[in-house]
Each structure stands twice: as C-alpha cells, then as structure tokens.
C-alpha cells in the first residue's frame, strides 16, 4: 500500500504549522493586547475560515492564488512558477484554513496572563517587543503547544481547501484525506480503512495531548 499521501500530509502539517505559529503568535498578541480601530473586524476575519465551507474558502484561494490573482502573480514574479497545484500552494491554503485553530488557543493563553506582569515589565524598562518575548511567550507555553497541536491535527485532516487549490497530484498535492476519498471512489475499501484508521489514531492522540496541555496549563494558572 502506498503511504506517500500520509507522509505528504505529515510534511504539509509540519511546515504549515511551523510557519503559521510564527505568524499567529504576534497576530494573537495584537488582537489581545493592542487596541486599534477595526480590531473587532480583524478578529472576525481571523475566525472566518471556521464558518466558511472549505470549498468556498478553497474557491477564493484558487482565484487569489491563480495565475491572474494578486498572490499568484506576485509569486510568479518572484519564483517564475505558478502557485496553484503545487506543494507551496497547499501550504499557504492550509495555513489560511488553520489560522483560527492556531490563533484561538494563543488568544486564550494570552488573555489569562495577569496584566500587572506586563505593566511591571513596562515599568522595568522593557519595550513592547521585549515584553512579548520575555513575558508573554514564556507565560503562554501551554497555549503555544495547544495551538501547534490543533493546527497540525487540523491540517492532517484537511480535504476541501487542498483539493480546490492543489488538486490531487500524486507525490505533490495528493494528501491522505484526498487519497482516502479516491480509494473509496475506486471501491478500494481496505486501503481507505487503513489510512482512515491511521488518521483517527493521530487525531485522537492529538486531542488527548491538547486536553493534557489544557489541564496542565489550568493547574499552573
């Protein structure tokens, strides 16, 4: 049985989660600690992928990332290649779709931090950037871990958005969930069952880990 789709899913999850975390941490801090006009709108925009059907989100991403879309054109100007139907394209699509899963646990963790610690750091001479690295992040380790685990798990099971943006190119964009769908279509239930069982096991393990992290973080709060 070909396990390439599973490895591709793991690679996609690992890369998109890593980049997503680096972006989600300052974004969550901005939404929690900085008052700016339109914060409510920005917060809702971050959560939009939660309520949009994946096909709708995938369609818009396909348009934006396509050869005539702004992101696709910019990418072509820099790299000389197209973005859709490539591994890079599905990394970006997975990041957009998993954004709320990465941002929400971080926001919750940041909101739990005692504001007096931030004020104290300010009085002690820290710049906002230093406060972020020296106080906020070290006191939100549970939230960072939960965010990483949720984004990873969500991307592992991602289907609609990746199918729209990446199609199903074996070895490049054919991830586990798409492979399962194609196995079922071809009536190859055994392969579909094995891949599904592996994904269920991974997802359940991830949930156990998130629950454990949440419990540990509430014990330390």
């Amino acid at each position: 049985m070909d396990l390439t789709p599973l490895f591709l899913s793991a690679k996609l999850s690992l890369i998109s989660t890593t980049i997503l975390l680096l972006l989600a941490m300052p974004l969550a801090a901005l939404l929690v600690f900085v008052r700016f006009p339109g914060r409510f709108l920005a917060d809702s925009l971050v959560n939009l992928p939660l309520v949009l059907p994946p096909t709708v989100l995938g369609f818009y991403l396909l348009v934006i990332m396509g050869p005539d879309g702004p992101v696709g054109r910019a990418w072509a100007a820099v790299s000389g290649s197209t973005m859709v139907f490539t591994f890079g394209g599905i990394v970006l699509a997975a990041m957009v779709h998993s954004l709320p899963f990465a941002v929400q646990p971080l926001k919750t963790a940041f909101e739990k931090i005692d504001r007096r610690l931030l004020e104290m750091a300010d009085v002690l001479g820290s710049s906002p950037m230093a406060v972020f690295f020296r106080v906020i992040l070290p006191n939100a380790t549970g939230g960072i871990a939960a965010s990483a685990v949720l984004a990873f798990a969500h991307t592992m099971g991602e289907f609609g958005v990746i199918l729209m943006v990446g199609g199903s190119i074996p070895g490049r964009t054919r991830v586990a969930s798409i492979a399962i769908y194609e196995y079922v279509e071809a009536m190859r239930y055994r392969e579909a069952a094995i891949l599904s069982l592996i994904l269920v096991t991974i997802s359940y393990s991830v949930l156990l880990l998130v629950n454990h992290l949440n419990r540990r973080s509430s014990q330390h709060a």
Partner: peptide, 20 residues
C-alpha cells in the same frame, strides 16, 4: 512619558514577580 522612560520602581500588592 511612557512608564519605561520614567525612573520609577513599582511594587504592587501581590503577584508582582514573573512566575516563570
């Protein structure tokens, strides 16, 4: 002036120390 630009020390009632 921002807090970090003033030469003050501040002690709250409690929870002043960084727990980490």
């Amino acid at each position: 002036l921002k807090a970090r630009q003033r030469r003050v020390g501040y002690v709250f009632q409690e929870h002043t120390l960084f727990p980490h």
